[in-house]
């Protein structure tokens, strides 16, 4: 169901979608039951069809039985939801599989700066490649990202990966993802970060290892550190 709405392009996208499907199923049943009982009472006990209302206190054990039984079923459903949600949370946010590559992501007022480790696959080395609003990654590779923000809160969100993590100035937050589908996808900022929040669109390009190597080769020398603020004010001007 979620697959039709938005593609799954990372290793844990399916797991998160399954949590959504599980909740949708349980909650859908409850909603259907509630609506069925609710509307059947409304249509059955109108003033015309049922002029004399009954006197039911709801305090006796007999009356309470109905509500309490439903009560325990709700608790049971909650426990099931909690287990699957916690498993997904642990898998995505708490444990980090061994990284095959690590990138640095810096959110700042109104653009994303990415640092690719370059050929030596080591960050903070001379051959790192900085790009703005465009992140190139290899498919089926476990990436760790070191997320930080330069000024205000931002949130690194790749909907097709089901990945979202706030970037907080003063903190480096480590997360991981493993792309499973090649293609170009959106990166959005999911935390209000000022007037340019709407233009902080970036692109993530998932490539085959060969294409990625070619890209690395091509970008080896250029080190794009052009001033981000000016670039964005142009973007803003267009959309004003």
């Amino acid at each position: 169901m979620m697959e039709q709405i938005i593609t799954q392009a990372s290793s844990y996208a399916a797991q998160i979608d399954n949590v959504i499907h599980l909740i949708a199923a349980i909650v859908g049943v409850w909603l259907a039951v509630a609506f069925y009982v609710f509307f059947s009472f409304i249509f059955k006990y109108t003033r015309k069809r049922h002029p004399k209302a009954a006197y039911i206190t709801g305090e006796t054990h007999e009356d309470g039985k109905w509500v309490h039984r439903a009560h325990f079923v709700v608790i049971a459903c909650d426990v099931v939801i909690l287990v699957f949600a916690a498993m997904a949370w642990h898998h995505v946010k708490q444990q980090l599989p061994p990284a095959e590559a690590t990138i640095r992501i810096v959110g700042q007022q109104w653009a994303w700066k990415f640092t690719d480790p370059g050929l030596d696959n080591q960050l903070d080395t001379v051959d790192d490649i900085n790009t703005i609003d465009e992140l190139h990654v290899k498919v089926n590779t476990v990436y760790h990202f070191k997320l930080e923000a330069k000024d205000v809160l931002h949130s690194f969100s790749v909907p097709v990966f089901r990945l979202k993590q706030d970037a907080i100035p003063g903190r480096v937050i480590t997360g991981w993802f493993k792309p499973t589908k090649t293609g170009e996808y959106d990166i959005q900022c999911a935390e209000m970060c000022g007037i340019g929040h709407g233009v902080m669109a970036a692109k993530i390009v998932v490539e085959t290892p060969e294409a990625h190597a070619a890209w690395l080769e091509q970008h080896k020398s250029q080190n794009i550190t052009q001033n981000i603020k000016t670039k964005n004010l142009k973007k803003l001007a267009i959309n004003k």
């Binding site: 708490q94 000024d151 480096v172």
Partner: peptide
Amino acid sequence: GQNWVKIPMQEQ
């Protein structure tokens, strides 16, 4: 904490 660390920030 788990997967996060505070870093000193230079004066804004």
